[in-house]
């Protein structure tokens, strides 16, 4: 949802190691990030909070795989993604996923090695995939229209 960006961000993890100098938190074990309808789950992560802990500017998550889910605007369903690495830049509200990326939403399924997702505009941009080095986007066949009353008899 576009409104997600104006929501608070909550991050949890089993353990954390914070470097006060650089403002980088290393997160270890059952990492979860929630911001509005956006939910990202991973095994470990890094939270960047420069400037003496003013704001979280960036979050990098890694998992086997890391998973992301977000509601789409206008009740159009959910976008679900998974990748080896998810890099969420809060400033530009962009998520870059790398490593065996797979994104599914009602419009179809996209796979690639590197995909960037502009949350504000809901735009996805893929880059090189699988064996033949291309991004693959599969659009499911349109469901046949239900036959009208006269034709059905």
């Amino acid at each position: 949802l576009e409104s997600d960006r104006n929501q608070a961000m909550d991050i949890t993890a089993r353990d954390s190691d914070i470097d006060l100098e650089s403002g980088v938190h290393q997160l270890i074990g059952k990492v979860e990030i929630r911001q509005g309808s956006l939910l990202i789950e991973a095994d470990r992560g890094e939270v960047h909070q420069p400037g003496g802990g003013q704001e979280v500017s960036r979050v990098v998550l890694e998992g086997t795989p890391a998973r992301l889910e977000q509601a789409l605007d206008n009740g159009a369903g959910f976008m679900r993604a998974r990748a080896a690495r998810i890099d969420f830049d809060r400033a530009s509200n962009t998520i870059v996923m790398t490593g065996g990326v797979r994104i599914e939403d009602p419009r179809g399924t996209l796979t690639g090695e590197r995909v960037s997702y502009d949350i504000t505009r809901g735009r996805v941009q893929g880059q090189s995939s699988g064996e033949d080095g291309r991004v693959r986007f599969v659009i499911p066949p349109r469901q046949p229209q239900a036959a009208t009353g006269s034709e059905a008899d």
Binding site: R5, N6, Q7, A8, M9, D10, I11, T12, A13, R14, D15, S16, D17, I18, D19, L20, E21, H25, L27, V47, Q49, E55, V56, R90
Partner: peptide, 25 residues
């Protein structure tokens, strides 16, 4: 967190059951 180890010579904090709340931008 449910526990803390702070080393101020290296400016590092180790926290257990970590939760961070960052307000909206």
């Amino acid at each position: 967190a449910s526990g803390l180890r702070a080393d101020f010579t290296t400016s590092r904090l180790q926290l257990n059951d970590f939760q961070l709340h960052s307000p909206p931008r």
